[in-house]
Nucleic acid binder design. Structure first.
Lengths: 236, 236
DNA sequence: TCCTGTGAATTCGTTCACAGCC
DNA sequence: GGCTGTGAACGAATTCACAGGA
């Protein structure tokens, strides 16, 4: 099983497929073709087939894929059959929202601890968990066997927190702080940056405005350059 | 100015460079080399030079880039010199956190309106804005000239909301709902999916565990496949 | 006949390496 | 001597297109 190296781009789509499959299963579908799954996942069917082929030959020619079986295989591949105790560092606006967000525990990411540096917040109850002081990090990470951490602290504290997390034995970090984190090679790092996403949208939005003025004859010279740059930017 | 088509991958890095540059400026730096900027932005220097070359020849050989000038150019390219009135649809956990998140307005994304379908929430004050009913969407989008919308509603309502946003004249959507949205070609769509990010981390986390057992001699056959799959996944 | 699985072709993105300018 | 700007080389990801099994 899992013979080869799955390309990163492919890995990052597996959760999308998984969600689409779960939805199809809820609608009573037993099998699904690559075209139907592609449609549900918002990609094209060649990608589906190629991506799934990295996991193994789980489809049946002339028929499609067995929905339940595929759910099982993708879950296994993603490591979702085990529980991953996770902690959230920082219980400001975003940290609180993340702590209350049901979507994590739903998929095996049990929030095992919340940390904050602000003594005023320590001891507060939040979604059945009591906020702990950041100085308890090392101890609790060990006790609860936490391997994944979500960083939701202000940018200026993010690197410090990351260093402490790494020292405490965390091996994966999901960073929400608007800062570039340096971590050792063996640590997996992903980032979610809210305002960067808006800035990317702004770029294409501006190009659309430019295109409109072109069509109104304001700056005809720029038409060609603009022509292909204003489409949808992701996920299609 | 802006002669050619900037590759999408490059566009999505510009906001990162911009933030690094602002930080450098705050530390009193006047010029920066591609190597120094690369370091601050967490990428390599060839990428910096190539990306910046798409914007024009803004550097000086033998010296580097003028920090302020580059900030100006990137901001202009990203469309950040204008104000983009933005709305948030859905004022649950996440919507509330986003409404209070300072990072948006900081960069010109003024939150101009909040919408919710729940009558109980309509009229609530949230970060100086009163929550409006979703039925006011069309009117307010026009009045406030909103072009960008942030979707933070439950997955099952996301497509409906997206359809209404598009009908109301929105042209960019940032989707936080864990659902695949279908929008017309002329609409820019980006998504932020919290639990997908964790699932991707889980994949690599699992591979690390597998690697450990390999090193303990449990499953020597899998070593080769695992070897290159457990590194950091993004931003380096 | 239908739909998967996959080599081959293509496109896109990254990195190298160095000419050219300060 | 130092650093940018960029063709050329390379590598990754996507798409095509079809052979082959159900």
């Amino acid at each position: 099983m899992s013979p080869r190296q799955i390309p990163e781009a492919s890995v990052s789509r597996l959760p999308v497929y998984l969600r689409a499959l779960v939805e199809l299963a809820e609608h009573g579908m037993n099998t699904v073709s690559s075209v139907a799954l592609a449609d549900a996942a918002g990609v094209n069917s060649a990608k589906i087939r190629k991506d799934l082929s990295y996991l193994g030959s789980y489809g049946t020619r002339g028929v499609g894929y067995d929905v339940e079986y595929l759910i099982h295989q993708i879950s296994r591949e993603l490591g979702l059959e085990q529980d991953w105790p996770t902690c959230i560092v920082g219980t400001g606006n975003l940290g609180q929202a993340l702590a209350r967000y049901g979507g994590f525990s739903e998929r095996g990411f049990r929030i095992a601890a919340l940390f904050d540096a602000d003594i005023g917040k320590v001891g507060t109850e939040l979604d059945d968990l009591s906020v702990m002081h950041i100085d308890d990090l090392e101890r609790v990470v060990k006790e609860e066997e936490i391997t994944i951490a979500i960083v939701a602290v202000p940018a200026r504290n993010a690197q410090d927190v990351a260093d402490r997390l790494v020292a405490a034995g965390i091996t994966s970090i999901l960073n929400f702080a608007p800062a570039v984190l340096q971590v050792p090679d063996h640590i997996s790092l992903r980032k979610v940056d809210l305002s960067i996403e808006l800035q990317i949208l702004s770029f294409y939005e501006q190009r659309k405005v430019a295109k409109e003025s072109v069509l109104r004859g304001t700056a005809r010279r720029r038409l060609e350059a603009v022509e292909r740059g204003s489409g949808t930017t992701t996920t299609r």
